[in-house]
Simulated scan of single mutants.
Amino acid sequence: MDKAGGKRRDISFRSEKNQKVVCVHSREAREYARILETDDTVECYDTCHLLEMERYQFVNPIDNRKDYFDVKWATDFVLYFVDGNIGIREIATEAMLAKKANIEKLEFSRRYWSFSEVVKDWKIIIMTKKGE
């Protein structure tokens, strides 16, 4: 999960599964998108999905920084499965998981999506950086 609209180097590519150009914010997310392109259980996917700030009021604030509730966030991937289910995937590396702030962001995402009536499948995908 990243701040929406933040300055970063975007990676754009043509997704055959989505039949359009999509954008991700990291090499790890691009690698995961490559995996999704060949996953027969995934019909299509959305990247950098903007969270609705109006729904932040339902997110439990315990152990999360108060300023997180004033920021526009984007989930890394929303997956639309062939069977009609919807899943959320947040991309992380082991190094990211060593920082409390990143854990808090992931927990914010989990809590946000836990109030969705249609999303029942939320996961963190741990990707390795090239050369590790």
Rank of each mutant, 00 (worst) to 15 (best):
R27E: 10
R27Q: 09
R30S: 08
R30E: 03
E31P: 03
E31T: 11
Y32K: 10
Y32G: 02
D39C: 06
D39M: 11
D40C: 10
T41P: 00
E43Y: 11
E43T: 14
Y45T: 07
Y45L: 05
D46R: 03
T47I: 04
T47Q: 01
C48Y: 04
C48S: 12
L50S: 08
L51C: 01
L51P: 00
R55Y: 15
Y56L: 06
Y56S: 08
Q57D: 14
N60D: 00
N60P: 00
N60W: 00
P61W: 04
P61F: 01
I62R: 01
I62T: 00
I62V: 00
D63N: 05
N64W: 02
N64L: 05
D67S: 00
D67H: 03
D67F: 03
Y68D: 03
Y68I: 03
F69N: 01
D70Q: 12
D70I: 02
V71C: 13
V71H: 07
V71W: 05
K72P: 04
W73I: 07
W73S: 05
A74F: 02
A74K: 04
D76R: 09
D76S: 05
F77M: 08
F77W: 13
V78S: 02
Y80P: 13
I86M: 06
G87P: 00
R89V: 14
R89K: 13
R89Y: 14
E90A: 06
I91W: 07
I91G: 00
A92M: 13
A92N: 07
T93F: 05
T93C: 07
A95C: 10
M96E: 13
L97E: 12
L97Q: 13
L97R: 13
L97D: 14
A98Y: 13
K99E: 15
K100E: 15
K100V: 15
K100M: 15
A101G: 08
A101F: 08
A101L: 11
N102R: 15
I103C: 06
I103K: 15
I103Q: 12
E104Q: 10
L106F: 12
F108D: 02
F108I: 12
S109C: 11
S109T: 11
S109D: 02
R111Y: 05
R111K: 08
R111E: 01
Y112W: 07
W113F: 10
W113G: 04
W113P: 00
W113R: 09
S114L: 04
S114Y: 02
F115K: 12
F115I: 09
F115V: 06
S116K: 06
S116Y: 06
S116H: 08
S116R: 04
S116I: 08
S116C: 08
E117I: 04
E117P: 10
E117M: 14
V118D: 06
V119T: 06
V119K: 06
K120H: 05
K120D: 02
K120F: 02
K120L: 08
W122D: 11
W122E: 11
W122N: 07
W122R: 09
